[in-house]
Design a binder for these strands. Sequence first.
DNA 1: TAGAGAGGCACC
DNA 2: AAACGGTGCCTCTCTA
Length: 610
Amino acid sequence: MKLIEYRIKGQPVRINVVETFEDLVPFTKFIQENPVLGFDTETTGLDWWNARNNGPFRLRLAQFGNGNESYVIPVELGAKFERITIWALRQADYFIAHNGTYDLHVVEECLGIPMEELAPKFWDTQKLCHLVDPRQIKEGGPGRKLEELVKFYIDPLVADEVKGSMTKIAKRYKVKKEDIWPVVELFDEEFLLYAGMDPVFAFRLFHILYSLVPPRSKAAGLMQWEHRLAHVTAKMERTGYLLDVEYAEERCAELMAEQSEYEAAARLYGIESVNSPKQLLEVFKGLGFKFTKKTKNGNLSIDDDVLSAMDHPAADAVIKAKKAGKWRKTWFEKALAGRDWENRVHASINSCEARTARMSISGTIAAQTYPAGSGYVRHMFLADEGHVTVSIDYGNMELRVMAAASRDPIMLKVFQDGGDLHDMTAIAAFGPTPAGMKKHPKRPAGKGTNFAVGFGGGWEVVHEQFGVPEEDAKRAVKAFWDTYKGVAAFADKLQMQARRTGYIYTATGRRLPVDKSRPYAALNYYIQSSARDITARAILELDRAGYTQWMRLPIHDEIVFSFPKERAEELTEKAARIMEMTFMGLLIPADGEIGQQSWGSVLELEDSKH
DNA sequence: TAGAGAGGCACC
DNA sequence: AAACGGTGCCTCTCTA
């Protein structure tokens, strides 16, 4: 046994590194004496889906610990160490991990224990910290990475020494930080300190965070709720999405050719790097163009809008070259590089991510950012063999939440009567819809206003982001507040709450911090967070009803499924009914669309809405 | 030479 | 009276 001694604010911490089979005797005793344990793993990378079929992914270390002592098991060294790790995982009553979802994937793939068996006894400090304070460092909060939490809640010195050590180790091995994991010596002392302290941190953090979770959130059951949700999204990650490799590779080649062509065209004007705003400004200034649009930091901006308005072949070439390059790299190549041995791609579904708890999807399937206008990108994902892709989404979810939560009588009535809120706002601003017209001619101004107000914007947003003429935008925004007085009162109430306490609470008992400098954001936080919880509830209900095997991705107000073709209609109807719910008295309807095998095919249905 | 910041762009 | 809410990821550029 190798012993590493460390101190957290003067208190000793013992890290026991198992080296031989004899060392397993005290480890066994430790596990039997500690029914609640911090847990962590060290692996060769993050691509757990590459463990099967002799893939390159390996589990290297498994660490168990309480607040003062931990054991590091060198799983990589052989079957006996694997077996004792499996035994320990089955032995203890509860485990505490930071982003335990990842460790559950690793344990399942590398040690063969199904997630279903372990998930119910895993507690996650990442979920707890979100309930305590969801703000990232850059937002002035404690952050949500383990290192950041240790720094904020335990000890800044310890955080720097221990969690910062991987950077030092990478330097010592002369590799990039992301490449250190498979090459670092298993018994490297600094690596063992890093690994061994992790479960100690998780264990300590859990107890600190548990006491800080707002009583209202606890009473509402949010802790259990978030853990169950994370488990369902982990099962979606495990299933993955089937990739049409041939289609993706063809698009890569096509975009590569397009990129080269337009880069060459831009080069004729002296543009060597189409992605350099600095260079673009220099060249175009040389061609006699004047620039006025500013970036948020006050520098001159040369984005798509500016370039489009220039009406010059070089500007056109830059737009096209940039686009082709970005689409290829970000979507097609990312998915191809992330596929497993069965050509399935596994997204990273962050079930509780944004300040509002909104989910995000990152990694190999950046699903939230796929172009919505056509199926070009989404075509690369396929429902399983014999299945079709189905997308079920909520109709006007955030606006319905706004209506229901604010109890605004006019807005509620529009939705209850099956009316069109965008038309209603247009009518309020510009008068009745002319006779003989189905939709109000200024409906786009109404629509822009409804959305802009929902995320805290004013007439400038309506004008700039939705392309509504300035005068119309001003008039529609004013009409919005004059008409929906209940929304105004609700927004005021939330703002007051935020100013007084620094927080607002949602209907589900979630506490959301609101910055003192931006109290108007409270309305958006309430709406966005409530909408997220409606989708989250649906995911849990769908899981209970046995639909997880068919769920592929949750995207805000939409869930994508792969249903067996012959049962598609029946399952779509049933799933939509499960998703649908009444929120504070108002129905939030869900509507499904059945496509062909590819996800992209759903976007090309003739009867697509709106 | 890695990392951070900025700009840009894709979405809800 | 009515304010730009939330993500992820790529490239370039500057700096420690």
